[in-house]
Amino acid sequence: MRPIKTFAVVLSIAALAATAAAAQEASLTVAFAGVKAHKGKMMGVLFDSQAAYDGKGEAVRAFAVAADGATIEERLPGLKPGRYAIRVFHDLDGDGKMGLNPFGIPTEPFAFSNDAKGMMGPASWDAAAFEVKAGDNVQTIHID
């Protein structure tokens, strides 16, 4: 009888988990403010850990949103609640890459969640990380 009992336990855990996931699903709307050049795209990447944010893991989502409208925002549904951080750059020329001058300095505007500022490099995870709670969330980033 042991296999049946185990199966039942697994089933019940799965059911619980499904219920919890439905209840705790989160969405995040990333809104852009202060945009000066209404052209190209905002190229954003969402991370859920410091390791990933620092380039040692996978991003949760990547998105591109046209920057020509009066309202520039991207809704990211289906997230787990937790801590996240965003890196974004304004792809002014639409080539999909962050422009760098010949000495390696960015030529296109960039920003981080929390409007965190960098110090001789990107803003730190600690400065850029924010909480996403169950339900709808909004993160406004000033760029340009």
């Binding site: 990447v45 890196r87 750059f89 962050m98 760098l100 000495f103 390696g104 300095i105 960015p106 960039f110 110090m119 001789m120 490099g121 990107p122």
Partner: peptide, 11 residues
């Protein structure tokens, strides 16, 4: 988001 030389400043 590669910032090659600029990031080297940080190190």
């Amino acid at each position: 988001m590669d910032r090659r030389s600029f990031l080297n400043l940080g190190a």
